[in-house]
Amino acid sequence: MADHYEVLGVARDASPEEIKKAYRRLARQLHPDVNPGEDASEQFKLVTHAYDVLSDPDQRQRYDMGGDASAFGGAGAGFGGFSDIFESFFGGGGGGTRAGRPRSRRERGQDALVRVDLDLGDVVFGVHRDIEVDTAVLCETCQGSCCQPGTQPVTCDICHGSGQIQRTVRSLLGNVVTSQPCTTCQGYGTTIPYPCSTCQGQGRVRARRTVSIDIPAGVETGLRLQLPGSGEVGPAGGPNGDLYLEVTVAPHDVFSRDGDDLLATLEVSMIDAILGTSVTIDSLDGSVDLDIRSGVQSGDELTIRGRGITPLRGDQRGDLRVGVQVVTPSHLDPKARALVQELAKRMRPAPPHLAEFHPGLFSKLRGKFKR
């Protein structure tokens, strides 16, 4: 790596103004708009990078210290005795310091959480959905390199690619070498002179994308489904995180869920309850015939096998359980009333009386089914 002072053609004790003038002079000569040659382009990059370092007082000081071996415990520094113990803890070494491993720009992306609203009918058999997700995707311009096309990262001049800056601290027990992340390259060991203009050097951009998913049968509100690798892409094109789908099932006007069973209420007229009848009702997956026996009572349960919900794990569907509610007419014309009175005389029903309490079925049933 060429010395920055030599690249700009200035002395090591050059003033900030001298450095600035040297950079302007060279930039006018080497700028691609003026000098399109390939060699000039490479020289322009070196000149620009050298100016970026030397024009910043902190970076220039670190660069100057990096070039002075005695400032980092070279031949003039004495290591030994108890200092060796401290060096083993702080990462130093008397016979030559051990550089830390630089950070990787590629990191795993974050997980994403999306809410999915379903109907009860979707839960019976499962459903396919295309979900729109607003998340981070790979930058198509740089393909995750973070650099403008045709360029690449360069080794950091301050830490020389280690990602760490080592400092010597004198104590009563000797010299102790400590390491900390290089603030110039943020610990990566490289810098990016020409960041990608599309993603600003991140290697990823925000975008809306479509994720196709098959939601299994039997899911319920609050359940989270995991789709590995479908979350956000990581910085610098790192691996994707996971996508989590949080399910919300909307209430149904007619049916309610009890485990893998479906519940419904069937209103039956007094006449049909006395004589019995057959009715066709609409379940969530088609019509089904239902026989109502003569003498059915309010609170009786009629079961239709295999018309419930397919379980999340397994293939044996639950049942459709229909609770009967006998509807007593509230208004009768004189002729109808006379017929009921005649029926009462023939049946001689027992007068109203208290009986043993039987808990009703309808605390579990919500909604009404209308035939």
Rank of each mutant, 00 (worst) to 15 (best):
Y5F: 15
V7Y: 06
G9D: 12
A14T: 07
P16F: 14
I19Q: 02
Y23F: 15
R24I: 12
R25C: 07
H31T: 02
P32G: 05
P36N: 09
D39W: 07
A40W: 00
L46V: 03
Y51T: 09
V53I: 15
L54E: 05
D56E: 13
Q59S: 14
R62K: 14
M65R: 13
G66L: 08
G66W: 10
A69V: 12
A69R: 11
F72K: 15
G73L: 04
F79Q: 10
F79Y: 15
S83Q: 03
F86V: 05
G94H: 10
T97M: 05
T97W: 11
A99Y: 12
R103T: 02
R106I: 05
E107F: 01
E107Q: 15
R108N: 01
G109F: 03
L113G: 00
D119W: 01
E132C: 02
A136K: 09
V137Q: 04
E140P: 05
C146T: 15
C147F: 01
Q148L: 07
C156N: 09
G163R: 11
G163M: 08
Q164F: 13
S171H: 09
G174V: 10
N175G: 02
Q180M: 12
Q186Y: 11
Q186E: 14
G189H: 07
T190P: 02
I192G: 03
P193I: 10
S197H: 05
Q200A: 13
G201P: 06
G203L: 06
V205K: 09
A207Y: 08
R209Q: 03
T210D: 07
I213K: 00
D214C: 00
I215R: 00
G218Y: 06
G218D: 09
G218N: 08
V219Q: 09
G222W: 04
L227E: 04
L227R: 09
S230K: 01
A236S: 15
A236D: 09
G238N: 12
P239R: 07
N240Q: 08
D242F: 00
L243P: 00
T248Q: 08
H252W: 03
V254F: 07
F255R: 12
D261N: 12
E267K: 05
S269C: 11
D272C: 01
D282A: 13
L284V: 04
L284P: 05
D285M: 01
D289G: 10
S298N: 00
G299P: 05
D300T: 02
L302H: 03
R305H: 13
L312I: 05
G314E: 02
Q316K: 08
Q316R: 14
Q316N: 06
R317T: 11
G318M: 05
L320P: 01
R321G: 08
V322D: 04
G323R: 06
V327E: 11
P329E: 12
P329H: 08
S330V: 09
S330L: 09
P334V: 11
K335E: 06
L339R: 13
L339V: 15
Q341S: 13
L343F: 14
L343Q: 13
A344T: 14
P349N: 11
L354Q: 11
L354R: 14
A355F: 06
F357S: 10
K364N: 13
K364V: 07
G367C: 14
F369H: 10
R371W: 09
